[in-house]
Every structure is written in C-alpha cells, then in structure tokens.
C-alpha cells in the first residue's frame, strides 16, 4: 500500500519475526499481528501462547482481543488457563470484548474449570454472548463456593431474561454475599411474575443498605404498582436516606397517589438530595401535595426550589387537563 497510508503489515514477515531469539522483538511482532485486522493472524497468535516468555504470551492474549469469533475465542480460552496471572488477566479482558455468539463454546466448557478466576472470567465472557446453552453452567455456578464466580453467574442469567431463571435468581437474592444479592435483585427486574416481585419485596428488608437501595429502585420499573406501593411506602422510613430516596423516586414513577403525603414529609428532610425528590410529587401530580410544595418554594437549596417549581407546574397541568 505505502504512500501516505498506514501499512497493513505482511503476516509472513511478522510470523518470521516471531522466531527471533529476543523476546522484545517477538513481542513487537505480536503487536503487529494484533493490528493486522486479518483473521489469518489468529492461528499465529494462538501459537504465541506457547512462547517461553510471559510478557510475549501476555501480548498475545491482548492481541487476540482484536479479533472475534470461535477461533479467536478458543485461543483466548487457552490463554485464560495460562499459569502466569498477568497472561490470564489479559485474556480475561480480551474475552469480555467478544460479541459473536459463536465465541461462547470454549467458555461454556471452562465454566466448570478448577480455578475460580478462570470460572469467573469464562462466565463474564458469556454474559454479552447471550447464548441459551449458557443457562445450565450458569445455574450450576450459582452454587459456586467463590462469590466472584456467583456474581458473574447472576449476570449470565440476568442477560438471558428467561422465565426459567427466576427460581434460581430468587435463591440468589438470599445469597450470603451482599454484592450477589444486589445483582440478583436487579437481574429480576425483567420478570413480571408475582414470585419475582415478592423476592424483590423481601430484599427491601435486607440487612445491607445497598441491597435495599437496589430493591427500592427496581420496584419502580414494574407494572405491578398497586402491589408494591405499600412496601415502598414503608421503605420511606428506612434508616438510610439513600434507600428513602430511591423509594420516593420509584413511587413517583409508579404514580402512587396514596404515597404523596408520605413523600411530602421528606420535603423538610435535612438531606438536600432527599428534598430534591419533590420531583416524585410532580410525577404523581396529586392536588393534595400543593400546600407542602408551596411551603418548600423558598428552600435554601436552588436545586430543590427548581424541582418544587417543576412539581407545582405538573400539578397545574394535570388540573388544567382534567378541566379541559
């Protein structure tokens, strides 16, 4: 090509330099193969994974991330079980870049590997690939002793959005690890069934505030408004303002009229962020909120004043629409 253009290097030349005695030179050849953009480089890169120098192997694992598809995935999977942790870490990152569902095969196989970090990386790669046959290994991985594996398993199941994952995700909402409970609660957001809602409900009473926060947020997505409103109203009394905030926001989204008086009470809360949730009162637009909002018009915080003004306007509009 040449001229003013960036070169597309000759694979044969790079392959020749992979045989150099010096590790640095081999490494440079590996980088070229990564940038070649030519799938014929994949087998050459797979060969690099047998290099005696860990730095060269790591470069190989990285370079493979430039490619997609089954052949690249198989090589990346090989790098994932490398004894050198840096090589494996580079492979884990490359695996997460894959988008072609065909790339899933080797990772389904590795989901039961002896090393926890390999299992976790394999599941992490499977998430975006959304392959139906990842369901089984992911369900099994939910019982993994290692929490870093379980959290990825929740991800795989959540991305699949399939009814049959609900029972397992429900169990995961009671996991010993709060991070997994958080993930499982959000993963249930897609499900409209009573069983799923009930599990999220229960999470509103979780001992960990961040789990409760996620639950309060997730309940705002559902269509089962009438069903969840009482539990969310109860969450307005949570010890953590972060949870109270999400509960108010969700109640706003659900337009839960009977929650309006309780949300209005937060207009005098000491936390500015909570007072800003006056926006929920605008979404609900109940005329009965007007006096509380009027009283908050001169809040010392400008953001609160702005939201209050917006909420009052919503109430006006709703009233005008009813008259018309």
């Amino acid at each position: 090509m040449g001229g003013p253009f960036e070169a597309y290097s000759d694979l044969d030349e790079s392959a020749e330099r992979l045989k150099a005695a010096d590790a640095g030179e081999r490494r440079v050849a590996v980088m070229e193969l990564g940038h070649a953009g030519d799938p014929d480089a994949i087998p050459l890169l797979a060969g690099v994974l047998a290099d005696p120098d860990a730095g060269v192997r790591r470069e190989g694992a990285r370079a493979l991330g430039e490619y997609d598809g089954l052949e690249a995935a198989e090589a990346i999977a090989l790098a994932l079980i490398d004894a050198d942790p840096d090589v494996a870490a580079a492979a884990a990152d490359s695996a997460a870049e894959l988008r072609d569902p065909a790339a899933a095969d080797p990772f389904i196989a590795l989901a039961g590997h002896a090393s926890a970090s390999v299992r976790a990386a394999a599941l992490r790669a499977l998430k975006e690939l959304r392959r139906g046959d990842a369901l089984k290994p992911a369900l099994e991985a939910l019982r993994d002793p290692d929490p870093s594996v379980r959290v990825q398993a929740v991800g795989v199941l959540g991305f699949l959005k399939r009814e049959e994952t609900i029972p397992a995700l429900r169990i995961a909402t009671a996991d010993a690890d709060p991070q997994i409970r958080r993930a499982a609660v959000s993963a249930l957001a897609f499900a409209q069934s009573a069983a799923a809602t009930e599990a999220i409900h229960a999470a509103l009473r979780d001992e960990d505030w961040m789990v409760r926060e996620v639950a309060a947020d997730t309940l705002g997505n559902g269509a089962a408004g009438a069903l969840v409103a009482p539990a969310l109203i109860a969450a307005l009394d949570d010890a953590f303002w972060q949870v109270r905030l999400k509960a108010a926001r969700s109640l706003g989204r659900l337009r839960a009229v009977n929650a309006a008086p309780r949300i209005a009470a937060s207009l005098v809360a000491p936390q500015v962020n909570l007072r800003k949730e006056a926006a929920a009162l605008g979404e609900i637009a109940a005329a009965s909120s007007r006096p509380h909002l009027e009283a908050a018009r001169d809040d010392p915080d400008p953001d609160v004043r702005k939201t209050v003004g917006w909420a009052l306007r919503q109430i006006d509009r709703r009233a005008a629409a009813r008259e018309a």
Binding site: D22, G24, E25, R27, V28, M31
Partner: peptide, 10 residues
Amino acid sequence: CIADKGCTVC
C-alpha cells in the same frame, strides 16, 4: 523500553 526492538507504540 523495547524501542530498540522495533516498538514505537507511545
């Protein structure tokens, strides 16, 4: 630095 081996990445 392995610039002497042909690297020019930076």
